[in-house]
Amino acid sequence: MLAFGIDSPDEMLKNTQQEQRAQHLGSQLRCLVCQNESIEDSSADLAKDLRKVVRQRIVAGDTDSQVMEWMVDHYGNFIRLKPPFTFTTALLWFMPVLALGIGCIIAFVTLRKRKHIEAEALSKEEQKRLSELMKE
């Protein structure tokens, strides 16, 4: 876990275990005003403020899920870089399985069918030969 945005040592917690938790949490939280950067990665002011809040809450004894809840409460699901599984995000989360499934089905069906076509094509050729033989 790396905190690229932190630009001063006094932002970090003295307790390394707590600091690690804070960095892990921060990497899951979006810096709202920047694009697709986590608050740990961003040097924006708001990201700095949010980093501070995460650390304050951890020191105050919040669990990881409580900190996350606090953030979602204040900023909505927009702040989560990993969206929660809901009805709206179902397609997003099912996409890997869906794409894999569709791919496998298409491959399976076409490959099976191909043998069938091949068999037909061969029999036509045989028929041709047969008719030629008949002519002779």
Binding site: D45, L46, D49, H74
Partner: peptide
């Protein structure tokens, strides 16, 4: 310090 802003969910 911007602390109250965070409480309100301010982004700017």
């Amino acid at each position: 310090e911007g602390n109250i802003g965070i409480e309100w969910g301010l982004s700017g």
